[in-house]
Design a protein around this nucleic acid. Structure first.
Lengths: 253, 253
DNA sequence: CGCTCGCGTTGCGTATTTTGCAACGCGGGT
DNA sequence: ACCCGCGTTGCAAAATACGCAACGCGAGCG
């Protein structure tokens, strides 16, 4: 167990909240300031951390570099980007791309709404496994046994009144998603925001990513949201074809 | 000296190049695979690393999250973003935003050209201190003694035929930049690409960032490049005013 | 101008962790 | 069925990390 490494990572997490001094970090981490100092020096030397004008430590530019390279290593993002940019252009609404990585669903691309609305999601953050539409799409393609295992291990945090609250409810919804080929988030993930998501498949037909359109409920009714579905599916199917997927069925809402 | 932490960071640097297996990483790092395995497990637990479908390790999504937060902590970027987006829209050329951090110049925003050209620069990478226009702008505002210290410590790598190759040449050019209020990169930083940069100031008048326009020499002559200067300066001055800067002089090319 | 305080830094000995070794376990291929 | 590649594990030794106590410096105050 790499305690020293874990401590350094914890320091980065503290600095992710806001820049801090040596003493502040030492206090937060319950670690002697000498120890914190040495870890920060190593992080500073490698550009993970930098000192601002007031001698506070803050996250360094190496993180931009690594992040940029990590995103570039995700081919799905490169292939999907122009399609989703167009979808965002046509609809004017927030568009996300998410993948299943390390037992979590992570947003790896995002296009902001043309309207003055902003959402909590951001590239790099994880999406709730039991409430986000992209999560349902990604889970729906998994074998039932794996779904059950994941569903059993979730903490069904009630984010809104509509949030699913049991493994049974989630599994039932996943079955419906698998059949209909898309998922919705009925303001389960973010209050006052609903969205729809559709799967992106690779040459083998496996779901490798999900894309979604999200809209505040005051801007668009549920019926209006569903009218975006053909457009969304056209984009996700175009991306899937670029990945070698061959459509065997006629799709419709 | 945090050897374990440094090793972990080196592993991340290897994975930045491309995903790799345990044995590959062990070989590259000259560290026993047991040690690499433990470090990777810790990194995986904290989402700095994830395993792909072929059990290779790759950079994880936590880096996106930290990078996103680190960029948000840089207020200058948020203030400058809309202005530089407009500059990019008006000119159609590549636009960069760079700051001086930890004795280096780092790109913290970039807007791609509307033409089919791509450059090596990317958010998070450092710019050469002796050849990039943004670097000259940032260095030009420093006290002479600090300039001399930095100039003396540089490795004057000859990137192109036009690259400056001595501290004296660099300091002379910095003096010129300070007087004229902008800098150029005469294909010193990237062959066949020239650019101009201008300073962004804060309320105290200090240069806190630099913005640049970069164009391939085949697309625009040097004279044509200089014609972009009023537009660039209009943007950097607007950003400076947003930061509280008060202009005391009439500016012109 | 001198003193005090806050905060980053340093030397060092001890405690703790890290490390590599040797072997194991598992899955895939022959 | 066997072998090989590769990830994993237990353990003892080696090496580092750690915290302590004090230092040094700059800023602020009297």
């Amino acid at each position: 167990m790499s305690q020293s490494l874990i401590r350094a990572i914890d320091l980065l997490a503290e600095l992710a909240a806001k820049p801090a001094t040596l003493d502040e970090l030492s206090s937060k981490a319950s670690v002697h300031k000498t120890t914190v100092m040495r870890l920060l020096h190593a992080l500073e030397e490698k550009r993970f951390v930098v000192r601002d004008d007031e001698q506070r430590f803050m996250l360094g530019s190496k993180l931009f570099e690594l992040s940029s390279l990590a995103l570039e290593q995700r081919d799905i993002r490169k292939v999907a980007h122009p399609h989703l940019a167009e979808l965002n252009g046509r609809t004017g609404h927030t568009v996300h791309l998410a993948v299943f990585e390390g037992n979590e669903v992570v947003y790896i691309d995002k296009f902001e709404s043309h309207h003055p609305v902003r959402m909590y999601s951001r590239i790099g953050l994880t999406a709730s496994l039991h409430s986000a539409a992209v999560s349902k799409v990604l889970l729906a393609d998994m074998p039932r046994s794996r779904q059950e295992k994941i569903a059993a291990g979730l903490d069904y945090v009630k984010v809104t009144d509509n949030t699913l609250t049991s493994p049974e409810a989630l599994l039932a919804e996943l079955e419906q998603v698998r059949i209909q080929g898309w998922a919705h988030d009925n303001a389960e993930h973010e209050a006052f925001v609903h969205c729809i998501a559709a799967p992106i498949r690779d040459a083998s037909g496996a779901v490798v990513a999900a894309a979604s359109c999200s809209v505040p409920v005051v801007m668009l009714s549920y019926e209006g949201l569903l009218e975006l579905l053909p457009d969304l599916k056209a984009s996700t199917e175009a991306i899937s074809r670029d990945l070698g997927w061959i459509s065997h069925e006629r799709n419709s809402a």
